[in-house]
């Protein structure tokens, strides 16, 4: 494993019953980069993400994350290993019975032995860094707008300073202004946390071209194109073109 890669996947195949969802896929993600994985609905993007998180075991092939072969980790080790990841879910997945504050405090209280005073300081900093004001700290997720939920979800994902941030369709279903805001937030987060690797799963071509360093295109379970963003724009792969010209 080279030091330059945060993630190395080789020959990854995943079958659900008789359906081949990922087909001997190989793919490396550079450390510190923002990499977007584009693909049509049903291409296997979420499945790929779940493999990276070790939530799904491959049928064949290997996945290394930060130099560790996931297949060699015991379930309990894998669980602890996941703390290297932060993930922003499509609908934020905030715990709906907890305030914004408690959501962000949750991983800190679970895993760090911080005093409640320190927790409070950390949570305030995190929430402020994603643009949530004091006024909304104690609101429940149901009392927040979609965009604010995303911000809180991001703050929660960042709480334990992950080395790899994952975004599952961060802008799907948002209005154009909120979409812009979320994209800026992603770029901003990567910028503020030097060395953090960001992986974005998306259908949103324009935004990915704007904020990514690398873009990959997943089709029928294979990465059919994977290039630095400037070259990706000029790709001549017919499937990629179809997607780009939409």
């Amino acid at each position: 494993m080279s030091d330059e890669n945060a993630i190395e996947i080789s020959g990854l195949t995943k079958m659900f019953g008789k359906q081949t969802v990922l087909d001997s896929l190989s793919f490396d993600v550079k450390k510190g980069s923002i990499t977007t994985i584009l693909g049509f609905s049903g291409a296997g993007k979420s499945t790929l993400l779940k493999h990276i998180l070790g939530l799904v075991r491959p049928t064949k092939g290997s996945i290394s994350v930060l130099g560790r072969d996931l297949a060699k980790l015991k379930p309990v080790e894998l669980m602890a290993f996941r703390r290297n990841f932060g993930m922003l879910f499509q609908y934020a997945a905030l715990f709906d019975y907890m305030s914004a504050f408690d959501n962000v405090a949750f991983p800190i209280r679970e895993f760090l032995k911080d005093s409640e005073q320190m927790v409070e300081q950390k949570v305030k900093d995190l929430l402020e860094s994603v643009g949530i004001t004091e006024m909304s700290f104690y609101k429940l997720p149901s009392e927040l707008s979609g965009g604010m939920r995303k911000r809180v979800g991001l703050a929660r994902a960042l709480a334990l300073s992950p080395s790899i941030m994952l975004y599952d369709e961060p802008t799907t279903g948002l209005d154009p202004i909120t979409t812009n805001m979320v994209n800026e937030l992603i770029a901003d987060t990567a910028h503020k946390n030097k060395g953090m690797t960001s992986i974005i799963i998306s259908h949103d071509v324009k935004a990915s071209l704007k904020i990514s360093d690398y873009v990959a295109f997943l089709d029928k379970g294979k990465i059919v194109e994977y290039l630095p963003v400037h070259e990706f724009e000029k790709s001549s792969n017919p499937y990629v073109r179809k997607f780009l010209d939409l």
Binding site: L53, L55, M79, R82, R83, M87, F89, Y91, D96, P107
Partner: peptide, 14 residues
């Protein structure tokens, strides 16, 4: 269905 269970899992909590 709102992925809160997945969120726990991703945080490394069973």
């Amino acid at each position: 269905v709102t992925e809160q269970v997945d969120a726990l899992e991703v945080m490394g909590i069973s």
